[in-house]
């Protein structure tokens, strides 16, 4: 295929734009996911959360968007690896004996380790999906999940699964550490996405940076609170 669109997407700027757009989609997804997960904090034996979880698992539109979500996660990860390896190759084989950099205006150091945060996040996603998503879709009684009656229908009880998972201190620690990594990834990624799309302006960039910083602290914090609350409740 050799048309302008393919040429654009495989150019350096096209690749960065794809990184930015997929990243922003995933950022948006996090907010929606958190809004749902906060239902877990209702101390109602899981009615609110199970209602929400079953709505999400069976609504056709949500299912369609979730396929897109998986696709964008993979695209973001594969593109990230491709960018990383191209950038390494661009450096050549002989590195500097001494390196020193003046203070830069973006998050110092974070940008260089986006790939490492990305790998941690990818591993986290696999564990997270196996633990909850797979159970919600394919789990059976006796194999890790119970059923509960919601509005006259027997549905999988994701709430008790969450409860059981977060009685384990190791999982709580794993989730909290992964949220810190996500926060670091977002801290750079949020504002970087706008720069890659060409949006850098003295009026708006400070606002983007502020919103990005607030978002990358508050959203992972919101997620991290859940395992901690469940662990403390249990203890």
């Amino acid at each position: 295929m050799n048309n302008w669109f393919f040429g654009f997407l495989t150019s350096s700027i096209g690749r960065k734009l794809l990184m930015a757009l997929t990243g922003l989609f995933l950022i948006l997804f996090l907010a929606v996911h958190l809004a749902g997960n906060l239902q877990l904090l209702h101390d109602d034996g899981g009615i609110a959360f199970n209602t929400y979880a079953n709505f999400m698992a069976h609504n056709p539109l949500i299912q369609f968007v979730s396929k897109g979500n998986f696709f964008f996660i993979l695209l973001h990860a594969i593109l990230g690896i491709a960018l990383w390896s191209k950038n390494r190759a661009a450096r050549g084989t002989q590195g500097y004996a001494v390196t020193k950099t003046r203070a830069t205006q973006t998050s110092p150091g974070l940008a260089k380790f986006m790939w490492a945060f990305g790998i941690v996040i990818f591993v986290f996603l696999i564990v997270h999906l196996v633990q909850f998503w797979a159970m919600m879709h394919y789990g059976e009684i006796g194999y890790g999940i119970d059923f509960v009656n919601i509005d006259g229908k027997e549905v999988r009880n994701l709430y008790t699964l969450v409860e059981a998972t977060f009685t384990n201190a190791g999982f709580v620690l794993f989730y909290v550490v992964c949220m810190v990594v996500i926060a670091l990834h977002l801290w750079h990624g949020f504002q970087s996405a706008f720069q890659s799309m060409g949006l850098n302006h003295p009026k708006y960039t400070p606002v983007i940076k502020f919103v990005g910083a607030a978002y990358s602290v508050l959203v992972p914090l919101g997620f991290a609170v859940i395992p901690i609350v469940f662990y403390l409740r249990h203890a």
């Binding site: 960065k16 973006t106 750079h188 060409g198």
Partner: peptide
Amino acid sequence: GFGMCSNITACEAECPKGISVENIARMNR
């Protein structure tokens, strides 16, 4: 064979003429 911008902004910090990374955004646009 030059690499791609990761928005590290070391270029701007080390530029002897103080060229801003706003120019990278303009190039992207």
